[in-house]
Design a protein around this nucleic acid. Sequence first.
DNA 1: ACATTGACCTGGGAGC
DNA 2: TGCTCCCAGGTCAATG
Length: 271
Amino acid sequence: MPELPEVETTRLGIAPHIEGATVTRTIIRYPTLRWPIPKQLKSAIQDQALQRITRRGKYLLFDFASGTLILHLGMSGRLRVLEADCVAEKHDHVDIHFSNQRILRYTDPRRFGALLFTKENPYQHPLIASIGVEPLTDAFNAEYLLSNLKHRKSAIKTCLLDGRIVAGVGNIYATESLFIAGIDPRKAAGKIPEKKLMRLVEAVKMVLTNAIKSGGTTLKDFLQANGKPGYFSLELKAYGNAGDPCPQCKKILISARINGRATVFCKQCQT
DNA sequence: ACATTGACCTGGGAGC
DNA sequence: TGCTCCCAGGTCAATG
């Protein structure tokens, strides 16, 4: 479900309510998400102050003096801050209670998410260490893309979705960025000239920035921590609009599958 | 090193 | 109403 803007929206929504508070109790109702939730998690964070929440790609990092809780929302994960007496429902797998009478609740119907804990530097955790550059930093630029894509034969969209190259870009924002940059998502990544890669870099940064400002994208079930939907859905130009006229040239938008993922693009504007 | 596919899971919608 | 089939915002592991 959530890509970088939804994860960042979640972080911004929950952090003010729980940063600085101390964990009083942890309830784990379902022991396994994508991987088993580590047995030592409860004791590791018990009575510990949550120092801050940061984000790396689609991962959220909860810093405690004892270590770092690493959380991924998978396809259907959601985090909310609720009053301590709020009744848990189906798929509410984890509650972390805090000293300020709030709970952080993790909900995830499909259970593709992950909740892990490390005492080491989280950036050295295998899942985090292999992640590519953050798209909203200067490290993500045309030269970086050029050198990383030079010999790649796979479709540019597949490369944009590859988290080892660039972090946090998922199917919605890859589709949108390629539309805005005017690049055919099927085109071999290694054959795209630097000038177009520059446009792509700018498009990715713009799309992600605007999506964060709008509180992310709600397709069906993503909600901000405050319960509101993400309003970037209203700004989607290509994703989900196959069969409609292209907003630029009015030619009908085409749908295709690239590496098993639904893709929408304009044959006229994207070359 | 790179490319492709299956696997993990539930829920919702389309079509009959 | 209810069944079956297909699809979904992710990404790791296994295979070629």
